[in-house]
Amino acid sequence: MIELKQVTKKYGKGLQTTEALSRLDLTVQKGEIFGVIGHSGAGKSTLIRCMNLLERPTSGEVWVDGVDLTKLNKQQLQNQRRKIGMIFQHFNLLSSASVYDNIAFPLRLAHVDKTQIAAKVNELLQLVGLEAHRDKYPAQLSGGQKQRVGIARALASDPQVLLCDEATSALDPQTTDSILKLLLDINRKFHLTIVLITHEMQVIQSICDRVAVIHQGGIVEEGAVTEVFLKPQHPVTREFILGQAGESAQLALQAPHDGSSRLCKLTFLGEKTYDSILSRTARETGVDFAILQGTISKIKDIPYGQLIIRLEGDAGQMEKTIQKVKAEGLDVEVLD
């Protein structure tokens, strides 16, 4: 659906040139929710702005729905942009227009006739749950409501793609959840491709299918969220994930432990999360285990669990336990 090829974006001239993106390749599949995570200054904002050419790349190609946007003239680009919705961290609503007029705005730009606009806007008001606020002005709405208007406006021209530029970063946790849930609903209902950028792992974890980690203008890690989240390879990715459970994992590693015991990290994914694999295996092999740290949660809809355990007992039996648990389909990382 979206393909960036060798995209480079430089700012400034001569010696003061800074490279925000360097020869970046990225592919987003149709219908998926794709997350890009990175620290501020990593280039993620530039990246998403390149997808509708709000920022024109210095070099490289930007393909959206089979069209290379960088090759279009002004008029053609304006037409293509109507197929790409965008929402923003600070909502960017017209402060002088009512909720209704804000949502109608993209349709009026495209000279859609009045009755069609009314039908579409009412449908969208219902979708985002703002029927009661149609005549209010943005200043009278809460942050979450403003973002709902933003989403409705972005959907008005039936786009193929929705770009979310830090869409929940200005919202409190509860509102963030409700907005994310709305995005997920929209994704499922309309098979809309969604690209979002964020600096919060929790956002990625709750709705994304795939994720890319951006660092210093390049993608350092990319893959299914379950994959990247549970087995992060790059230090930056680890940092983002440790940000959540990091401290207690650190404490677990400091637990008393000597040559006669082994520290392991077990990862359960999917239905196995609810299986009693560990205790069954331990009973068979006769080893003991202590749970030092544990998480059970969900990535989008997929349950997962992660335990740091200390095995105690005969060395051979401990090895056997690890092998058996692996054979049952758990991922085991021996930490010592």
Binding site: N79, Q80, N92, L93, P106
Partner: peptide, 8 residues
């Protein structure tokens, strides 16, 4: 910028 992104 929002208006621009909508193809204005």
């Amino acid at each position: 910028e929002a208006a621009q992104s909508m193809g204005a």
